[in-house]
């Protein structure tokens, strides 16, 4: 809980993390720090919303001075968050697991503010998935459809922005053999259509080299059941 620090150091660490999260809206840390940071910022935003929407309290930003660093940059941004999260009661942050850090193998997590304009990794990732599916002419699977709705639901002009981003992803990540060898896959699909055979889409490929190697035995025709 204390991250191996005393209370003074812990406060400084947390304020630094929260301040940089507010400024950049996307940071990478260890899961332990990310959880504390998420709690801290959710609390700040909830209270700011409460004060801002309550007409009787006029001055509330001075309350943030003791809680944040770089006050010139961070405190004005709270207005933006109050407006952005007016439809949400909680869940202003999102944690995404990343591979452990090279060197000390410490687990890493990307912590980001939901629905931010500049650096929303999950939004970009889902856009990339959709870009691949559209390039191959495949329908969205259940999980991806759910993720798309999740990502665009509360965003201002979310669907338009998503469509734009999908275009950009097609251009940036799926050309010149970068990422997926999309050209080959498309050719295969076209041939299959001509032959009137059920196409072999990517998600039905085995996940492992051989499916008799002891683990992940059900590697074909598995159904992804999205959590609701």
């Amino acid at each position: 809980m204390t991250l191996g620090r005393n209370s003074k150091q812990l406060n400084h660490t947390l304020r630094n993390l929260v301040s940089s999260l507010i400024i950049h809206e996307h940071i990478t840390t260890t899961p332990a720090k990310a959880k504390l940071t998420a709690n801290y910022i959710e609390n700040l935003i909830t209270k700011s919303k409460k004060h801002a929407l309550n007409n009787t309290t006029k001055e509330w930003k001075h309350l943030l001075h003791g809680k944040l660093y770089n006050q010139k940059d961070t405190i004005p941004k709270m207005d933006l968050f109050v407006e952005r999260y007016s439809n949400r009661n909680h869940g202003f942050t999102r944690m995404l697991k990343l591979d452990p850090r090279v060197g000390d193998n410490a687990p890493q997590v990307a912590l980001e503010l939901v629905d931010n304009e500049n650096k929303e990794l999950f939004f970009w990732y889902i856009a990339k998935v959709v870009a691949r599916l559209e390039l191959q002419g495949l329908p969205l699977d259940d999980l991806t459809a759910k993720n798309v709705s999740k990502v665009t639901k509360y965003k201002v002009n979310g669907e338009e922005k998503f469509a734009e981003l999908v275009k950009l992803c097609k251009k940036e990540f799926f050309t010149n053999g970068e990422g997926l060898e999309d050209s080959n896959e498309i050719e295969i699909d076209i041939e299959n259509d001509k032959l009137d055979i059920i196409p072999t889409p990517l998600e039905n490929k085995p996940r492992m080299k051989s499916n008799t190697n002891g683990f992940n035995k059900q590697t074909k025709n598995f159904v992804v059941v999205p959590r609701s």
């Binding site: 697991k97 990343l98 990339k128 691949r132």
Partner: peptide
């Protein structure tokens, strides 16, 4: 699902 490379489940 995006690039077709190996990845850990539940990780990006």
């Amino acid at each position: 699902p995006a690039c077709g490379h190996y990845k850990r489940s539940h990780f990006l």
